[in-house]
């Protein structure tokens, strides 16, 4: 029985705003093992990015309240002192963001920025050594002509190349965990394929665990092993990728899968959108956050609007829904 690399328990994140408390994350718990790839999916405002930034301790400010725990190799990140957090960030746990241009400083060369990421955690490294490391890192992420490129500034690179540089920076200290927040959302599909391939190769080489945050179900299916589905700040389903796509148990996961067209599905079948819109995180509905959009809520005599469903085991998956286990496990018929 190995202990997981990261173990998040009952994570809550609240933002105080002039209009009221935004309950961005409400009681999220999950584990990730060494070398594993875990996806967190959900739509805008579901709390997936806030969960990730809480693990990196990037949420700060007077109006933000974070509670729960995030044990990384047995140590709780959420109760660490600032100094300890700084040591962890970028060395043990690294993060890459959606927009590589804002993640890079426009006034420094990329070589400078890559070596800075190393020297912060390895003070006293010689300039010569740093240059060699940066050249090596740039070459590893597949950027041609590293000797010339190392002297260039972020604006001289394309979006895909910038994301490669950010990946080079994130991986230079061989982190145990990489958090990738929508790393390919701003990129074209052919570039996305390049970057996903790169993350996969780097992961294999270093044995890094990856948390991939995305809204693209295609990306989830192609690169990850396990998936967490979030809705309005809560985990609604936790499953292996195979199970989540072949036999989704939560009505929201099912709705999400029916809303997308895949290149291998029947072209003329009609899309089945989820009716309505996600709830406001300031004024959350009572009970299950999905009940107002759920087609099955009516069959449970009001339980869905009063009682919050807990995650329960359904076959190999975990699902937060009041429907009986046998109904969730079997594909629910449209007539229900």
């Amino acid at each position: 029985m190995n202990t997981p690399l990261l173990s998040v328990r009952d994570l809550h994140v609240n933002f105080g705003t002039s209009e009221g408390d935004v309950q961005a994350v409400r009681g999220v718990s999950f584990d990730i093992d060494r070398g594993e790839t875990l996806a967190i999916v959900g739509e805008s405002g579901s709390g997936k990015s806030v969960t990730a930034s809480a693990i990196m301790r990037l949420n700060f400010g007077a109006d933000i309240r974070v509670s729960g725990s995030a044990l990384f190799e047995g140590k709780d990140i959420l109760s660490m002192g600032e100094e300890e957090v700084r040591k962890m960030r970028g060395s043990d746990v690294a993060m890459i963001f959606q927009d590589p241009l804002t993640a890079l400083n426009p006034f420094y060369t990329v070589g400078n920025q890559i070596s800075e990421a190393y020297t912060i955690h390895h003070p006293g490294t010689s300039k010569k050594e740093l240059r060699a490391l940066a050249l090596d890192a740039i070459e590893k992420v597949g950027i041609p002509e590293p000797v010339k490129r190392i002297k260039q500034y972020p604006h001289e690179f394309s979006g895909g190349m910038r994301q490669r540089i950010v990946i080079a920076m994130a991986l230079i200290n061989q982190p145990k965990l990489l958090i990738a927040d929508e790393p390919t959302t701003a990129l074209d599909v052919t570039v996305q394929a390049q970057i996903l391939e790169l993350i996969g190769v780097m992961q294999e080489e270093n044995g890094t665990a990856v948390i991939l945050i995305t809204h693209d179900l295609g990306v989830v299916a192609e690169v990850t092993e396990r998936v967490l589905v979030m809705y309005a700040g809560r985990l609604v389903e936790k499953a292996s990728v195979i199970d989540a796509f072949a036999s989704p148990t939560h009505p929201y996961t099912r709705g999400l899968l029916n809303s997308v067209k895949s290149l291998d599905s029947d072209r003329h079948s009609r899309l089945e959108p989820i009716p309505g819109i996600p709830p406001s995180l300031i004024d959350l509905p009572t009970g299950c956050p999905f009940h107002s959009r759920c087609r099955y809520a009516a069959s449970l005599n009001g339980r869905c609007s009063t009682e919050v469903p807990e995650l329960k085991a359904v076959g190999n998956s975990w699902s937060a829904c009041h429907l009986p286990v046998d109904l969730l496990a079997a594909p629910i018929k449209e007539s229900l």
Binding site: P144, S158, G160, M161, V189, T190, Q192, A193, Q194, L196, E197, D216, L217, G218, V219, V220, A221, E222, V241, I242, F245, A246, L257, V260, S262, L263, D264
Partner: peptide, 27 residues
């Protein structure tokens, strides 16, 4: 061909069978 093969398919079981063409370089 490269464009089509780059599109991720939301079906984990189909992934292994598909051959992805990775383009090199930029436009």
């Amino acid at each position: 061909k490269a464009l089509m093969s780059a599109v991720p398919v939301p079906n984990p079981q189909a992934g292994a069978k598909r051959k992805r063409i990775i383009l090199t370089g930029d436009v």
